[in-house]
Amino acid sequence: MPLLCIGHSHLACVTRAAVTAGVPLRAFNFWDLPGAIVNDGGQPRFAEDIREALIGHAGPVFSFVGGGAHVVLGMLVHPRRFDFVLPDEPDLALDPAAEVLPATAVRRILQSMTDEYLTLMGEVRRLASGAMFHIEPPPPSADALRMHADVPWVMFPDRCREISPAALRYKLWRLHSQILRAWCSGNGVTFVEAPAGTSDADGFMLDGYYGDGAHANDAYGELVLAQMRQRA
C-alpha cells in the first residue's frame, strides 16, 4: 500500500525524494490540485474525490497541511519591527531595534493564521480511519543572506528588503510547532518532529538541507520519507 500524504508545499520535497528512491507514495498536494478545498459556508472542506480517497484508505495518513504561517509572519522584517520572548526559552536573542510584543499575543496572531489549516487537519482526522501523523514544518535557516537572494523583491517594491533576524524566525517556528503539537495532542494525531540531525546546536536547519527561504530540499525530504516509512 502506498504511503498517503496530504497537505501543502512542504510535501513537495518528500514527493521528489520518493520518486528518486522508488518508494510508492500517493500525495494530495493542494498546490497541484486547484479546487481540492472548497468553501462550505465559511468552513474549508475537501473536494469529494479527496474525501473518498481518505475514507477508503485503511493505513496511516501523513499530514503536511499548512506549515507556513510562521514564515508569513516572520520571514520579512515588518515596517514596525517586532520581536517577542519565547516563554520556553526566554534567553534567546532579541532584536535590539524591535519592540517586544507579548508572547501570548503573538501566539494568538499565529493561531488565527493557523485556524484554517487546523480545520482541514480535523477533516483529515475525521475522514481517515487509520493512524494520522502530522509532520512538523522544517526548522528555519540562519542564513539570512541566502534567504535574501530567494526573495523576488521586485514583487514588493514598497517593502523593507530585509530578512528578519534568525532568532525571531526560530522563535516563531517554535511557537508555530507548539500550536500544532497542542492541536495534535488533543485530536489523537501524532506530531512528528523534524528529523534528527537536520539542525545545528542552536536549532537552525543545516545548510545541506536548505531549499529556499521557506522550504527544505530533497535531502531533507529523504529523511522525512524515512520517518514516514518507519511509522507506516
Partner: peptide, 30 residues
C-alpha cells in the same frame, strides 16, 4: 504586511511545485 507576506510565501510554494529543470518563475523576473 500579512497579505504581502502571504503572496511571497505563495510564490515560494509555487516554485516548489515546479520541476526545477522546466519550471518558469511565477513572477516578472528582473
Amino acid at each position: 504586511f500579512l497579505s504581502q507576506s502571504r503572496r511571497l510565501v505563495d510564490v515560494l510554494c509555487d516554485e516548489q511545485r515546479l520541476d526545477p529543470s522546466t519550471g518558469e518563475l511565477p513572477m516578472n523576473a528582473p
